[in-house]
Amino acid sequence: MDELVLHLVKLVVALLLLLHHAALPVAAAAHGHKTAVLESQPALPAGMRFLVSAAASSPASPASGSSPPAAPVSTCLYTVITETGNKLGAGTDAKVSVKFYNKSGDAVTFQDLENGADDNFERGSTDTFEALEGPCVSGICRMWLTHDNTGIFPAWYVQSVKVSQGRAMKTFRVMQWVSRHNSDDFASLLMSECDYFSP
């Protein structure tokens, strides 16, 4: 019986020491659900360990009047393939950009197409621009193709432009020149195959 009382006294002392030393680990754990292991060798019976767990603090409520966080915008990866015609002077050194729309007016734009090749948009060439990131636009049916009209011979004869996103692919059969006589202007071409268009 005396032995049981002695163990109970040791246990009470150990709990008191535990409460005394627990403030620091609990405060540290208050930022996330972590478990701190406390050991006090002189006061605890051999082999006895105590675990103190602090639950994660709940996030603070947003301040009144503040707007809720914006929903993430979904993005997709596109591939654009341009085919330059095989006519005399068909290639261009100008910077080419393209914008694609669907019939609802949703659009994705790719500025200054570049794929690391030494010379894109040369006569008779097919150039592929992969992993272009932009907002997801399904049902593409309209294209605005432009270049900045720079270079010695900026006029560009475009055979076709293809755009794909996932399994969906759209081909615009251009087969015409994209050019401007005034070097200060952009050269542009608008093609639409939409049943209707609502910008």
Rank of each mutant, 00 (worst) to 15 (best):
D127L: 04
E83L: 03
S160Y: 12
R180A: 12
K99G: 05
G116Q: 00
S125H: 08
D148H: 01
G105E: 07
N86H: 04
G105D: 05
V174W: 05
H33M: 00
A70T: 09
G91Y: 04
H31M: 07
D106F: 05
S198I: 10
A131H: 15
T84I: 05
C194N: 13
E114Y: 12
W156K: 01
D185Q: 15
S97T: 14
S125G: 04
T35A: 14
S179R: 05
T146E: 11
H31T: 10
G124F: 00
N149H: 13
A107H: 07
K34A: 11
F110M: 10
P25H: 12
F172L: 00
V5I: 13
N115T: 07
G89Q: 09
G134F: 00
K34I: 09
S97F: 12
W144H: 13
G85C: 06
D2C: 08
S40D: 13
A36D: 08
C76T: 06
W177A: 11
E122M: 07
S57F: 11
E193Y: 01
M143A: 11
P62T: 04
E114P: 02
T84C: 02
R123V: 06
L24V: 15
T126G: 03
V178A: 14
S57W: 10
L38P: 12
V108F: 08
P62K: 02
W144M: 07
Y196L: 03
A131T: 08
R167S: 09
H147W: 11
A43N: 08
P68A: 10
G91L: 01
M175D: 15
R123E: 08
R173T: 13
W156M: 11
L145P: 05
V98G: 08
